[in-house]
Design a protein around this nucleic acid. Sequence first.
RNA 1: GGCGGCGUAGCUCAGCGGUAGAGCAGGGGAAUCAUAAUCCCUUGGUCGGCGGUUCAAAUCCGUCCGCCGCUACCA
Length: 511
Amino acid sequence: MKSAFYITTPIYYVNGAPHIGHAYTSIATDTLARFKRMDGHDVFFLTGTDEHGQKVEQAAAAAGLTPQAFADKVSADFQDMTQAMGVSNDDWIRTTEERHKQSCQELWRRIAASGNIYLGHYEGWYAVRDEAFYDESELTTAPDGKKTAPSGAPVEWVREPSYFFRLSAWQDKLLELYENNPDFIAPTSRRNEVLSFVKGGLHDLSVSRTTFNWGIPVPGAPGHVMYVWLDALTNYITACGFPDEDAARWRFWPADAHVVGKDIIRFHAVYWPAFLMAAGIPVPKRISSHGWWVVEGEKMSKSLGNVIEPRKLVETYGLDQIRYFLLREKPFGADGSMSHPAIVSRINVELANDLGNLAQRSLSLIARNLGGVLPARGALTEDDLGLLNAANGLPDAVRACMDRQTFHEALEEIWKVIRAANGYIDRQAPWALNKTDKVRMGEVLRVLVDTIRAVATMLQPFMPASMANMLEQLGVPEHARDIAALSAPLADGIHLPAPRGVFPRYVEPAA
RNA sequence: GGCGGCGUAGCUCAGCGGUAGAGCAGGGGAAUCAUAAUCCCUUGGUCGGCGGUUCAAAUCCGUCCGCCGCUACCA
């Protein structure tokens, strides 16, 4: 019986175009989802778009479209980007879907029924762009008298009747949750921030709006639509069939991991579990947050004109190359920098030279000297065993890293084995053995094939297409490409296809 | 202002009490199976400054400097 594993990206807000940050989140989540599938779990991987709220309403108006038409268009663009990144999501949720409306309204009813929602009114400085209220002390006043939020978004004074969620009542329960589940928020630095935020005391949260219509109606309260974050977060249970607990997918709840950017941790680590506890629904197991990319040392911004369009990047360097770079170059939780030289270096040094060339030289020797027939292992020497043991240790080593979302460490573990294999092939020099001891040459090449197989298998979640190609060349049948299959050796004597380079070097286009 | 993090080789970073490490870049050599791809050796750091604890400190404590993150209310 496979154990269920449910993982999500945030749903992307449709008021802007997809950029590298969205692609990064999706690729990281996808890599985790693929790893879990390969490691024998029954995975449900969800992503999609967040389509309500005043910002969307305004963006639609500016574009001369109805909010729905506008959302349709942008959501389709996000879906296109998602596919272009090789993302293997099992569902694509949109908050404008009927299933989601039902889900949100039922969640609202349950929270209300438990006495956690009351009617009040809200007034304060509101930034439409951030969908958030700010305290006067947080604002900056420009010389022309206009006030702006810390984010730079303009704010306006708003007074409206509003339903409130009793967030203040959940402070102790939340702290208990963090206490009992030290891994609930990752990485630790973010956990500490959330902890200090909650310990500082929580205010009730305004969860309805009356100043616009583009949202999910609050049940039994004409004129009120739900706060976009309550709406958006609920997507995670909608997709599991909520409120139908007999739905096939309900077994996936609670989610094993919500992968999010560091900017939206509070919504996921504070508000979301509080909403769920208030409704009597189990809370997710982990909120895993990641950092930002800066480009050529500069923060990405529209005004600087250096916003990276992920599909462009893939066009230039290749999909698997970009997936690899994004997860290899910086620790997941931290900020990091991308630049052309850095990408080229990763591609040429690690993919083309270290790995691609290792596979190519090993397989060429088999093709050329053994007629493409996979040789059998012989009695293993100490050198053989050293390499094979390193390769055999990969599943556990990589699994441990993936469980902590330390992708760059997982890749480093794999590269240690690749470097060791390059050392091994040089020491053993099978090209020299071809003239002196052809049997031993075959044994050496078999050790290499088995090692590269383990490497390629473990790299599949990161670079699916390239590794499928490599495994094909290694003679690994499609049904034998998961982690469990590594324990079953390839059949001696099978015919390997003619080797062809998997990772071409990146060459600067002629100017 | 408060809380927290970081500052280690040219670059990116690991080490977090026992006399400085990796990858990349640089230098030298070997090999020539391979995508001129690989392998071996090697140059290079008073581990941000100053004090302290200890037989012994990148590693603990204090303080200063410089970056960064979080910061609802009260003060």
